[in-house]
Simulated scan of single mutants.
Amino acid sequence: MAYSFSLDDVKFLRSRHGVKALEVASSLDLSAASMLADIAELRARYAGHDAALIETVTCRRRARGKLRGADDLLLSDEALQQATNSVVAEHRAAEIAARFPDAVVHDITCSIGAELIELERCAGIRGVIGSDLDRIRLAMAQHNAPGATLLVADALTPTSTADVVLADPARRSGSGRVFRLDQLAPPLLDLLTNYSGRTLIVKCAPGLDYSMLRNRFGFDGEVQVTSLDGGVREAVLWSGPGMEPIRRATVLRTEAEGLVTSDEVTDREPDDVPVGDIGEWIVDPDGAIVRAGLVRHYAYRHGLGLLDPQIAYLTGDSVPAGERGFRIVEQVGIAEKALRKALAAHDCGTLEILVRGLDVDPDRLRKRLKLKGSRPLSLVVTRIGRKGVGFLCEAGVRF
């Protein structure tokens, strides 16, 4: 069970003595094998603070690769789980600065300040405010984002005249993850109502039913679905003056030496694409494009077609940069006997199975196929019309 920090813990960790204690704790292995000895050492030297030191160091280690400067942050297990990846937050800060130059931005659910850090770093943002009801997380945020103005405030009570308001409602309760809009904390519809007429950006789970939000509740702003390195991270609602009901997918990828590339598709682009003409390749578009309902728009941009109008697999004679392509070897039936025969004929030894549009468990199917060859292949299992089909392909390649 995760450790619950106190304000005294945070005060100690921020002190000169606490900084030295964290250096000592960071030098320890803190593995399952060494934990008893490590606890004894820290307890002997820093009685009463050993649990806070261990929790901080282990959280910092888990935060590497997710949060910038992880080894200097104060954070808790729950706050780390909820924190936005620094790459995603940095991209958002840059977009805010481009769209609202010289803005003051108020993160009304700032928690430990992961978003504040990136807002502070962005040259085009004039001022940063953070607020939260959790005083312990605010104390951590004061350490993590020292340039921000911090307030104890309820997110549903406007407490500033900032140009842009940013919110990230909690999607977990004591019983686990929540899915209904009114179960978010604070509730999404209350946020939209209380900040009506102001520029409001709300981060939501990537599975948000934005169509229902539009059709049932009249949301008329932008919906942005963002992915990072192939994983869909969030659906973001942009509302306020000048916002239009646009859908957009933002695809972020980290390249060599930390370089981040960004690509965006919107529903303002053409979507008239051919269906059913199978090319040399099958393309599995990024999840943000699929979640945003922009597969046709993406296909048009890159000269691709659809295998089926209801299925998000694309096909063509080339693969867009950054996407995974599967060069078709043979179209096969999906009966197991036919699959085993085709896989044996192609000397398949390892098989990646991708499924869309059919109720097929890839792991169970792979076990039943009893592969004995040496060649790595991919199998795309889907449907065209009402018929299940398979495409045996060379192993997927990222272009």
Score class of each variant (00 low, 15 high):
residue 5 F to K: 05
residue 327 R to A: 12
residue 113 G to E: 11
residue 175 S to H: 14
residue 376 P to E: 07
residue 293 G to M: 03
residue 104 V to K: 10
residue 209 D to W: 13
residue 212 M to W: 13
residue 85 N to V: 00
residue 348 C to T: 15
residue 43 R to N: 12
residue 9 D to T: 03
residue 113 G to D: 09
residue 281 W to C: 03
residue 174 G to S: 07
residue 394 E to N: 05
residue 230 G to A: 06
residue 59 C to W: 04
residue 129 I to R: 13
residue 66 K to G: 01
residue 250 T to I: 05
residue 234 E to L: 06
residue 358 L to H: 14
residue 250 T to H: 00
residue 142 Q to N: 15
residue 48 G to H: 00
residue 179 F to N: 14
residue 392 L to R: 00
residue 361 D to N: 15
residue 236 V to Q: 05
residue 216 R to F: 09
residue 319 V to E: 03
residue 43 R to Y: 06
residue 52 A to W: 00
residue 146 P to G: 02
residue 383 R to A: 12
residue 124 G to S: 07
residue 183 Q to N: 10
residue 335 A to V: 11
residue 270 P to C: 01
residue 360 V to Q: 13
residue 252 L to E: 01
residue 121 R to D: 09
residue 46 Y to V: 07
residue 356 R to T: 02
residue 167 A to Y: 00
residue 123 A to W: 02
residue 150 L to F: 10
residue 209 D to K: 08
residue 238 W to F: 14
residue 39 I to H: 04
residue 243 M to D: 09
residue 109 T to M: 12
residue 315 T to Y: 09
residue 145 A to H: 05
residue 250 T to Y: 06
residue 141 A to V: 08
residue 46 Y to I: 03
residue 368 R to H: 14
residue 314 L to Y: 07
residue 98 A to V: 02
residue 246 I to V: 09
residue 197 G to E: 08
residue 318 S to Y: 11
residue 11 K to L: 14
residue 332 V to F: 10
residue 386 R to C: 11
residue 332 V to R: 03
residue 397 V to I: 12
residue 179 F to H: 15
residue 259 L to R: 08
residue 258 G to M: 01
residue 312 A to V: 01
residue 270 P to A: 00
residue 268 R to G: 07
residue 79 A to T: 08
residue 237 L to P: 08
residue 30 L to T: 02
residue 212 M to K: 14
residue 40 A to G: 01
residue 330 E to A: 08
residue 257 E to T: 04
residue 144 N to R: 00
residue 88 V to E: 06
residue 333 G to S: 15
residue 240 G to F: 09
residue 150 L to R: 00
residue 308 D to K: 11
residue 239 S to P: 10
residue 348 C to M: 14
residue 244 E to S: 14
residue 112 I to S: 11
residue 384 I to R: 13
residue 382 T to K: 01
residue 95 E to M: 11
residue 322 G to E: 04
residue 250 T to W: 03
residue 125 I to K: 03
residue 121 R to K: 15
residue 218 G to K: 12
residue 272 D to K: 06
residue 219 F to G: 08
residue 315 T to N: 07
residue 392 L to W: 02
residue 322 G to I: 02
residue 130 G to L: 05
residue 245 P to F: 12
residue 167 A to Q: 00
residue 197 G to N: 08
residue 17 H to Y: 13
residue 57 V to H: 04
residue 307 L to Q: 06
residue 238 W to C: 01
residue 26 S to F: 10
residue 77 D to W: 06
residue 149 T to L: 13
residue 132 D to G: 07
residue 375 R to L: 14
residue 371 L to E: 11
residue 192 L to Y: 10
residue 184 L to G: 02
residue 71 D to N: 13
residue 47 A to Y: 12
residue 85 N to L: 06
residue 181 L to D: 11
residue 65 G to L: 05
residue 201 I to L: 12
residue 210 Y to T: 09
residue 394 E to M: 00
residue 178 V to I: 07
residue 82 Q to G: 10
residue 221 G to Q: 02
residue 193 T to N: 13
residue 385 G to L: 05
residue 8 D to P: 06
residue 205 A to L: 12
residue 278 I to N: 08
residue 205 A to E: 10
residue 17 H to Q: 15
residue 276 G to Y: 12
residue 101 P to W: 07
residue 132 D to K: 07
residue 274 P to N: 00
residue 229 D to R: 05
residue 168 D to E: 13
residue 306 L to Q: 00
residue 295 V to C: 09
residue 188 L to G: 10
